[in-house]
Amino acid sequence: MTEKTNSTLAAGAATTRSRLRAGFIKRDLYGFAAIVIVAAAGYVLFPDNLALLTRIIAIALLVLSLDLVTGYCGVATLGQAALFGSGAYAAGILSAHYGINDPLLMTLGGIFAGAVAGLICGIVMLRAHGLPQLVLSIALVYLFHEFANKASSWTGGSDGLSGIVLDPLFGLYEFDLFGHTAYFFGVVLLLIVFTLLRIVVRSPFGMLCRGIKEDPVRIRALGASPHKAVIKMYIISGAVAGTGGALSAISTQVVALDALSFTQSAEALVMLVLGGTGSLFGALVGTVIFMLFEDFVSAANPFHWLTMVGALLIVVVLFAPKGIFGTVQDLLSVRKNTTGETRP
């Protein structure tokens, strides 16, 4: 048995601590920088297609929110768009019916509505596990969809919600026809959400959730309630999805029933699996690749693009089950280990 005095133990602990902290901050900065660089590259490469890029950001927020409950807590859901759509409708209704046209207030409305929808979905979903849980999530998204369809005096029903008017952002920047303002607004929102989520996923709470995903019995033996923690994560997830919904309503100035659809939920799950679950970068990578691929292939071959998307998915699931980001990360760490470097 090793004999260590308390002072060397404490000193060792302190260096480990500062090394770990430096590692976290470095990775956060890399992530932040990567988003800024990709966003800038998108702006330079596709100046005529900023609407698509903004939509990618909105969907990325939806996929991030899905990652929180599926990737970090292990909840199987095909109904995440219920939270996204709630945010979109809340932001849209604030403007179209209440004349609240400030984009920041609309976004706050979307965040709040998403969080409330997250709370409701969380409470219902956690009544079941596994396959029944998945079916509940589908039922929920259809209920939200049908509710929005019937409440057409508020939502415009199947015609969509129109009449959204926007004040300039901070009273300075008009939302222009080319979508410059909306794009910058989206990039800033994404950076804020990403930074906050990085903090959340490596907080004690984030660690607790990862534990719940692996073994709820173990977590209960620690005296923690998995149920409470997952509902809390659902509320956070709802706020993130609601942000995406609000961004979508603000950038397109209409909200369609699609925002609340099963299809949208399923696509989000596909993007998450494509990028890699349980990692925020995975969610972002999956969204960007799926949506760019979809856009590119559907333009190149309007009849068979879905076949191509299907083929891509099969290849990823069969040959890179951890998703594109997860697999690349594994490859890099293997290379690092063989060159003698060790991870902390």
Binding site: R17, I199, S203, M207
Partner: peptide, 24 residues
């Protein structure tokens, strides 16, 4: 995680516990 749970801090949303001196 066990220490944080015992001290009622396992639901905190900020700060990596690997960098908390008292816990570590």
């Amino acid at each position: 995680l066990a220490v944080l749970q015992r001290t009622g801090k396992s639901a905190e949303l900020h700060g990596n516990f690997l960098t908390r001196p008292a816990v570590m």
